[in-house]
Amino acid sequence: MAPLSLLSIGASLLGRTVGVCSSSSVLRCSCIAPALQRFSTTAGPPRRPLSAYLCYVIEQQPIVLKQNPDVKIVDITRKIAQQWKTLTPDQKRPFEEASLTDRERYRVDLQKYQSQLTPAQAAAIAEEKRRRMEKRNASRKKRELNSLGKPKRARSAFNVFMAEHFQEAKGSNVQAKLKSLMDDWKDLYVSQKQVYVQLAEDDKVRYKNEMKVWEEHMTELGREDLVRQKEKKATGTKGDKNNSTVKVLKDKVPTKEKVAKKTQPPAKKALEITEM
């Protein structure tokens, strides 16, 4: 189901799409053309193209709202989504054609927009896109790890203190409460902090044990990519470490030539030097 926040964005995109729709899509989408004329383009980057589903939502929303004036917008969107699922391929085709046309419009507008950018602006946009992608990937990986049951990280002494006293902390919002807790933590004596330090140490033991079991389970599932690198080295290079130790010990074993050289009498060495 499409997010509600996309509806207003989609309406602007569809306004530029309806004028170039095919003959079959114009007939189906003509009912929303007047409502789209009030949207105008901006000097910024082009808006992303509408999907076929969003085209259908924009057409059906005023109709369903008129038929159900007392229904919440969330329920309206849910009803439209159910209607979309029941449409036949022929009924969906006009909206799919409108979406394809809007995609072509977006491609042309994007090329035009990018050609007007300075190198510095293009680099800044690329960097921002990279940061958004990293954030999205990190969020996706976090959800995956949570679904796989990865243990929660060990808490610090302050985190233990904060969790215990957060409800009673001063402040009307989260930031104010955190600031108040940080001030209270700084005012504690070392002996008072020691209780939370010990709890944090116990939590480290808990985390270490749970992570060991979890990583063994991930290895059994074939997800070695989720195992920490240091754990891989500790298990994967154990044999190499033993071999290197044997090699070092072997090098320390004196050979026959070394023994003979060390046990050679000093007089014989002096004689050899004189003869040379």
Score class of each variant (00 low, 15 high):
residue 4 L to S: 14
residue 7 L to C: 08
residue 17 T to L: 04
residue 19 G to E: 10
residue 19 G to K: 14
residue 29 C to T: 13
residue 31 C to K: 02
residue 32 I to A: 08
residue 41 T to R: 08
residue 57 V to E: 08
residue 58 I to M: 12
residue 64 V to E: 10
residue 64 V to A: 14
residue 66 K to A: 15
residue 74 V to N: 08
residue 79 K to Q: 03
residue 80 I to Q: 10
residue 81 A to H: 15
residue 81 A to K: 12
residue 83 Q to K: 02
residue 88 T to D: 03
residue 91 Q to T: 10
residue 92 K to D: 04
residue 98 A to I: 00
residue 100 L to E: 03
residue 100 L to D: 09
residue 106 Y to F: 14
residue 110 L to R: 13
residue 116 Q to R: 13
residue 117 L to D: 10
residue 119 P to T: 07
residue 122 A to W: 11
residue 123 A to Y: 11
residue 125 I to D: 12
residue 128 E to Q: 02
residue 131 R to W: 13
residue 135 K to Y: 12
residue 136 R to F: 13
residue 140 R to I: 12
residue 151 P to E: 02
residue 152 K to T: 05
residue 161 F to K: 03
residue 172 S to H: 09
residue 174 V to A: 07
residue 178 L to G: 01
residue 178 L to E: 07
residue 182 M to D: 07
residue 182 M to E: 03
residue 194 Q to W: 06
residue 197 V to G: 10
residue 209 N to V: 03
residue 218 M to S: 05
residue 222 G to M: 03
residue 229 Q to P: 02
residue 232 K to S: 06
residue 236 G to H: 06
residue 243 N to T: 13
residue 244 S to L: 02
residue 245 T to G: 04
residue 246 V to A: 14
residue 257 E to T: 04
residue 261 K to I: 03
residue 263 T to M: 13
residue 263 T to K: 14
residue 267 A to Y: 14
residue 275 E to Y: 03
residue 276 M to R: 02
